[in-house]
Write a protein that binds this DNA or RNA. Structure first.
Lengths: 174, 174
DNA sequence: GTCAGATAGTTAGGTGCCAAACTGATTCCG
DNA sequence: CGGAATCAGTTTGGCACCTAACTATCTGAC
């Protein structure tokens, strides 16, 4: 199933990155920079942690995201373009992921009769079994992981992340 | 300088990912899952945005992180091991990054006389010029980007990110 | 009707990240 | 002293991303 196997997880100390840079940066920039680094490290860690418990079936968060979208479509299928939009990555990335999923027999794409440029992807029986099983496991895992968060904390986190991203989006108009 | 040139930035709509999965997930899991996806997307976007204005000199956030650490050491130099710890990535990753930086002439490593396993890295003159120039630019950019955030918001974000990461770290003790 | 442009997907080349296996140097211990 | 364990860094191979350049297909404007 072409997957990342777990084992060692170096993880390293909390990224108390570069405490001495104060010399060069004033306070607001320092704090922003620190936030960027922590954001990177956190995303990386979470991704690794999840990949670990998805190894052997779904395999990675990206693949999970696709399979969930397909599952949610309830057999109607979804165009690759739609997946691109839903995931927020490029066509090229999705193209590669879909090829791998198809190679693994979890997914099957076929050209749309109406518009022969389009590829419509559907879960195979195997794919559906895999995502269902993964979903069961995830219920348990996520419950354990998020038990220490209130709903308000999570939504505050997503709001801040969203704003953070927006701030980087287009800092170019006067 | 081996760099990623900007141009197209597909970016896609806000990852209003998978609105229909409600059928399969209960509320807390749904919210957690959504947060994970947004975390991924945000980290990716921020990384891309920063890479864009670092193209042509430093080149990427990871490289910037290393050069800053080296700069902050004020010519004393830093062992590769130290960089690994500071960045929170694996030896293998740093090994590759350092090789690329050396190839680009920004950095020079030499074996430590005391412990001949260790490599001590230092900025070259070129490397120092590059990081200084990048720093000037960053002051401007970061000021623009973070102007809409209060210090409290940023620190609340970093705190939540930190907790989020911890939650994923070791969900394995009773 | 045709032909330029937009659109959907693919491919090639490159980056950052990881795990695992390997090399050399150092330290520890009997 | 000498071999085992440990430690620093490299290499190999894989995944998820990206950009840029390409192929088909469709659409729209003349």
């Amino acid at each position: 199933m072409s997957v990342r196997k777990p084992v060692e997880r170096p993880s390293g100390p909390p990224p108390a990155v570069m405490q001495k840079i104060r010399q060069h940066l004033s306070e607001p920039e320092l704090q922003g920079l620190r936030t960027v680094f922590i954001l990177r490290a956190t995303a990386q860690h979470v991704d690794n942690a999840i990949s670990e418990w998805m190894a052997g079936s779904v395999g990675s968060v990206a693949r999970y995201q696709i399979l969930m979208a397909l599952w949610a479509s309830k057999g109607k299928g979804i165009s690759h373009k739609h997946i691109v939009a839903a995931m927020g990555v490029t066509r090229a990335t999705v193209s590669g992921l879909m090829a791998a999923l198809e190679r693994d027999g979890l997914v099957k794409s076929q050209v749309d009769g109406e518009d022969r440029r389009k590829l419509i992807a559907r879960l195979t029986a195997k794919g559906e079994a895999v995502i269902k099983k993964q979903h069961e496991l995830n219920l348990v895992k996520f419950r354990a992981v998020f038990s220490s968060f209130t709903s308000e904390q999570l939504s505050s986190l997503t709001t801040l992340l969203h704003r953070f991203r927006e701030a980087f989006a287009a800092p170019d108009e006067p």
